[in-house]
Every structure is written in C-alpha cells, then in structure tokens.
Nucleic acid binder design. Structure first.
Length: 664
RNA sequence: GCUGGCGUAGCUCAACGGUAGAGCAACGGUUUUGUAAACCGUCGGUUGUGGGUUCAACUCCCGUCGUCAGCUCCA
C-alpha cells in the first residue's frame, strides 16, 4: 500500500540521491515539472532530473527568460500589455501590445540590461495554482486583457496557474527554472510585428525575439552559427560569385548569369543522365493552356489566385467586337474592382493560363493514346518552366520565386506496381543526395487528412506502400498524421545541410484525383478498363530552391564537375604567360573549363581573386613549372604539389566526372 | 497581402535641411612579381520612382515600385 505524500520534485530526487547539481527541472511520471513546486507523489512515482544541458532544459530556460524579458519590458514601458511568450526552436519570443511607440534597437539594449539586473537579483519562480475566478480577478486588476482572453480559451477541466518572480506574474502552466539566477546566457535578437493569434484580422503586436542558453559558451556557439549562416546566404553569394541577379521588372524571377546558368544546367544534366538508368522518359510540354485544362484538373477552382493568366491580343479584339459570348471578368479574377472593370469584356473562351504544374499536361499525354497494362509503369519527366504567383511577403531569394523548374516526373502505374516504383524512386533519391554530398536525410510520411478524396481502402494501401518501401530500405520515418494532401498521402525527404539545418527537398506523392478527373484508363490483361494510379515525385524539387540550399550547403564551393570553371591558371610573371596559354589550350582540348589570369597582379592577388570566385583548382605557373612543363596545383587552401602536364590533365578530368560516372 | 525597416557609383557603405564622399571593382599607366589584396592616376551618381513642403530636400511629408524581417513552434 502506497501513501500519497506532498513533496517537491527536487526533494524527491534528493531523497533518491538522483539530484545532480546542474538540474533545472524534473520529469515526474512522464510530465515536465518544476523542482520546487509541491506535488503529490507515492513510492511508485518515477522521477528523473532534467540536466541543464538537455533539450528539455533548454525550453524551460528559454521560457523563463521570456518571463524575465516581459518583466523588464513592463518595468521600462509601463502600460504595455503582455500576450504570449513561448520557447521556440532557436530561442524564445514574447508578443507585446505597446501603444506608445515601437521597440528600437536601443530599447532592446535597455531591456537586456534590465533583464540582467533581474537575473542578478536571484528571484525565485513561484507557481500559484488558482481557480479561474482568482486568475480572472488578478489579471483584470492588472488590465491584462489578452491574458483574460487566453484564460477563457483554457479548457474547463485544465488546472489554471500563474507564475511569479519578484513582483511580476504571468498566466502560465510552466515549468520554470527554480530562480532567475539560472538564466546566465541571454541575448535579445530582433523585433518584428506579429498578429495576435497569428490572424491578420487581429491587432498587430510587437514581437521581441531572443535566445538563451545554459552557458555563455553555448550562446556564443549559437551566435557564431547564425553568423556562419549569414556568410553563406545564397543571395549574398549569388551576387559575389556572379551566379544570378534580379530586376524589378520581373520581381521574384531570377536571371541566371553565365556562371549560375552553368551550375543550373549541370544539375539538370546530372539528373537527366540518371533518368536513363531509372527508366524515365523526358517530355516537353506547352507553357500556356486554354482555361479548360485547368477546369479539368481542378486548378481553376482551387489554384486560380496563384496562376498567371495570359491574354493574347485576339482575346482583347474579340472582346471589343463582342463576337463571342463571354462571362464577366470579375467572376474570373479575384482582383481589385478597377482592374476587373477595365477587363470586364474579355471573353472566357480566350482565357488561358501559364502552367503552375506539369501534371495536367502529362495526363493529356497519357490519355491521348489508348494505353495497355504493358505500357505501365509510364514515367514522364519534365523540366518545364512553371509560374506561380506567390504572395509578395513570402518571396525570398532563390528559395521562393515566381518562376522555376523542377526535376518533376509523374509515374502512371497500377496499384500493385506502386511499391516497386516507390522503392526505385528511393534508390534514385539516395543516389542523387549521396552524389551531391548531402547524404543525411530524414523521412516523413504524411497521411490521410480529414478532408480527403477517394476510397479509404486505396488510401490505406497507398500509405502502406509508402511505409513499406521506407522500411524495406532499412530506414525509419516520422509520421505526420493528417498532413497529406486531399488527393493522396506522401513521403517527404528532409536533408540536413553542412551547418545542421534541415530542408525538405524530395517528395513522392500518391494521387487518386487527377486520373479520375482526366478519366485516365488502361486496358488490363483481363481486357477491361482500369484506372491507373499517379505518383508525383521530385528529388531536388524546384531547381531554384535547391540551388539556394546547395549554395549555402557548399558555401559556394561547388564540386569540380558542377563548378562554372574547374581550374584557374595563374602565372608568377608575364614571362610565364606563353607556356600558360599552351597549357590552358591543352586542358581545354581535354574538355576542361579553364580560366587564365593574365593580369599584371602579383601571385597572391591572383590566388585571392580565384579563391573569392571559389574556383575548385588553381594551377600556379612560374620558372620551375615552365622548365618542367606542368603546374603546381592548389585546391582551396591545400597545396597539392607539382603535376606534369599529362598528370594534371588526368587529375582534373577525374575530379570533373559527375558522381554517377565516378561510381560506375 | 498585412505590419515595420531599408533603397545613395557595378559592389560594400558614409553624409541625415545648405546642394554627395570613401574603399573595392572598371579603365590608363608604372611594377614582373612564388601562394588570399603592389603603386599612381582617371572615369563613374537628375541619391529607386512620382508628387508635395521649403529660399534650399539624399535628408521632412504622401503615393508608388523593389527589397529585408516577421505574421501561433500557442497560457
């Protein structure tokens, strides 16, 4: 018989001799709690100390820091109302409603200074479990209207509590560190607007972001990583390396300069090379279609606002002469009324759309000829250019653009073939990620959402096929329940880059919808018609977005097979130029991309110029190299020594091989 | 889209009511160099754009375009 007793997690752990010095919280019966708040325990209660360096502790520290920040803000800016202040992936934030002004960078410095005072005061965090009425009374006397709103949204069966350090209180379920003294490494990072409860119809609040770590060393490491990410920013490198540019005449639409276009095309030819091996057939499809196509595919209904509509002069002429029976333009456009008015006579039959996706084209191709089960699986690949109207606030360098192309393909197959197709896609994906030296990825399986289309049995079969394919490869996946599209479940592939960030690149998605809408059929061995399954899949996804990831992953140091130039020859002085020209010509004849720096700069300056451009190899030519007929090779900061001309060619040609051919 | 910040020479930035400047790049010359920036000179801007205020606007105000950050990881 166990008797319940009142104690604290800290006390309990101490009695059990399991309370190390650097403990900030505890997990009691699976729940994260404070060390210092009274709880009911029995002998059966399990308790575990949460070490200051664990991820759980980090969240507690950050949440406590958010409280301290809100305290500091209200001390410095009386009348400011608090809202919410959670811990997040890289730190924490707190949203404030401040009516008398905006937080400036100087304000952040002041707030941070006040926070340090609060930390130095070593104020304990005390939890108060209260009734709803008590909480209501307390926060309404403080005028904290947002907290009252939150209080209302807390389910009736949940306990309500507030936390106090010093004089300051906040409606909060905790847990918190025992005292402000535990918050030793804090930093406020930025201020930005955020809507109350994330809804743009609600008032705009001011959000202060900050971060906190168990110690200064960890904080410094984090700040250094942020700096590293800034240094690798693809927008900055794209400019510095002459890869791409933008122009306000085509917002969010990249112009790939010669060096960038080389890398772009290199990626496509790499993928294209693998398509032969994996049995894909590449197709080329139109850019602009009659609106009827998008009605069939369902995009007109669901995706119209994201599409660019193209109008020929024919359409305008037809409208003017009123020969065609039309519909009101304001039924087509969801745009400003004055635009709709200006265009109101444009006729529906002439409306056309620039493609945002390739799948409808591929469905037309599939349906154009009678298909037999012997034609399946049919894998149609398409690098076609897509246009999507993305909201201005979501645009970002190459990673979110309005025109791009994908390493897109659609596989038409039978239900039975699905698992094999998924497995084969998995092989392709692994080969590419390994080839591009981004071999680490995790997988998520997104399953049937509440609103879905098609038969549950098919959904179950598709989800099982996706899961089985992953397991068969000896991999695990995270389940994302209900995150699938309305037309089918999918696998998502999230790769980890060189500085530990995760990006979703690849995906394979089952589609029960489009074959239905396009009434696609094949004749089975039983001589009757069957509906094929359609798989959408991409390895890199948008090439533009992939490039943004790849540039940041490599910090601009592309592998030699992909780099715009593979080697720069630099001479020690003018008198070595003649031989350098001969050598450059012979390397070019061997198929290598060679630059020759014939400026009158000193050697050091030439090396610097080549390094800034991230050219993989630098060949130095001076007296010794002319005499011995070769070059001294350098890769990055590493000196590879002297290579005679023939060896140099062989060495560079080896490095210039794309991964597929290297491994073969 | 919304809120806020920012648009100055090709690039990175300064000047913040008195009429625009530096470094790098480019160009010309000198230098002939041994592993991440030689030296001298020259060119380069209706300060994104359209209006307004003022004797005077890069600077202040309004519109517009572009761009950057953020816009539930919920007490």
């Amino acid at each position: 018989m166990t008797t319940p007793m009142k104690t604290t997690a800290g006390q309990l752990l101490k009695e059990r001799n399991r309370l190390p010095n650097n403990t900030v919280a505890a997990v009691v019966d699976g729940k994260l709690v404070d060390l210092h708040t009274p709880i009911e325990v029995s002998e059966k209660t399990t308790a575990e100390a949460v070490n200051v360096d664990s991820p759980k502790a980090l969240a507690v520290i950050r949440h406590s820091t958010a409280h301290v920040m809100a305290d500091a803000v209200q001390r410095l800016f009386p009348g400011t109302k608090v809202t919410i202040g959670p811990s997040i992936d890289n730190g924490f934030y707190y949203d404030f409603d401040r009516r008398d002004g905006r937080f400036s960078d100087e304000d952040l410095a002041k707030i941070e200074a006040t926070m340090r005072e609060i930390v130095a005061a070593d104020l304990p965090f005390v939890r108060h479990g209260v009734t709803r009425d008590e909480a209501q009374a307390r926060f309404s006397s403080l005028g904290e209207t947002y907290k009252l709103e939150i209080l209302k949204s807390i389910p009736a069966d949940e306990e309500v509590s507030y936390y106090q350090h010093g004089e300051w209180i906040d409606l909060c379920e905790g847990p918190h560190v025992p005292s402000t003294r535990y918050l030793q490494a804090i930093k406020l990072t930025s201020v930005a607007g955020a809507y109350w409860r994330g809804n743009e119809n609600n008032p705009m609040l001011q959000r202060i972001y900050g971060t906190a770590f168990p110690n200064q060393k960890a904080l410094d490491a984090h700040l250094k990583q942020l700096e590293e990410a800034r240094a690798r920013d693809h927008r900055k490198l794209g400019k510095e390396l002459g890869l791409f540019m933008f122009h306000e005449y085509a917002p969010a639409s990249p112009f790939f300069l010669p060096r960038g276009a080389h890398v772009y095309n290199g990626l496509i030819s790499y993928i294209r090379g693998l398509y032969a091996k994996y049995g894909y057939s590449e197709v080329i499809t139109p850019q602009i279609f009659d609106k009827a196509l998008w009605e069939t595919s369902g995009h007109w209904e669901n995706y119209r606002d994201n599409m660019f509509l193209a109008l020929g002069t024919d359409a305008l002429e037809a409208a003017r002469s009123e020969k065609v029976q039309g519909i009101k333009v304001d039924e087509i456009f969801t745009v400003e009324p004055e635009v709709a008015t200006a265009l109101k006579d444009v006729r529906a039959g002439y409306m056309s759309g620039c493609k945002a996706m390739n799948c409808p084209s591929h469905c037309l191709m599939f349906g154009a000829e009678k298909k037999s089960y012997r034609d399946l699986p049919l894998r149609l690949a398409d690098f076609g250019r897509l246009h999507r109207y993305e909201r201005s606030g979501t645009l970002h360098g190459l990673s979110r653009v309005r025109t791009f192309s994908q390493d897109d393909a659609h596989i038409f197959c039978t239900l039975e073939q699905m698992q094999g197709e998924i497995a084969s896609f998995f092989d392709l994906l692994e080969e590419v990620y390994t080839g591009l030296e981004m071999p680490n990825f995790r997988i998520a399986l997104a399953t049937r959402p509440e609103k879905y289309l098609g038969e549950i049995a098919n959904w179950d079969a598709a989800e099982k096929a996706l899961a089985d394919a992953v397991v068969a490869k000896g991999r695990t996946f995270d389940l994302a329940p209900g995150e699938g599209a309305f037309y089918g479940p999918k696998l998502e592939f999230h790769v980890t880059d060189a500085i530990g960030r995760s990006w979703q690149l690849g995906t394979i998605q089952v589609d029960f919808n489009l074959p239905e809408r396009f009434e696609l059929e094949y004749v089975g061995s039983d001589n009757s018609a069957h509906r094929p399954v359609m798989l959408h899949r991409a390895v890199l996804g948008s090439i533009e977005r992939f490039l943004s990831v790849f540039i940041e992953h490599t910090a601009g140091w592309f592998p030699a097979w992909l780099a715009p130039e593979q080697v720069v020859l630099v001479t020690v002085s003018d008198k070595h130029l003649e031989y350098a020209r001969t050598l450059a010509a012979s390397l070019r004849a061997a198929g290598l991309r060679v630059l020759l720096d014939d400026s009158s700069d000193k050697l050091g300056a030439k090396i610097r110029a080549a390094s800034v451009l991230r050219v993989p190899f630098i060949g130095v030519i001076g007296d010794k190299e002319v005499t011995e007929q070769g070059a001294t090779l350098r890769k990055g900061r590493t000196d590879l020594g002297f290579f005679a001309a023939a060896d140099l060619t062989a060495k560079l040609l080896e490095a210039a091989q794309p991964p597929a051919r290297k491994s073969a």
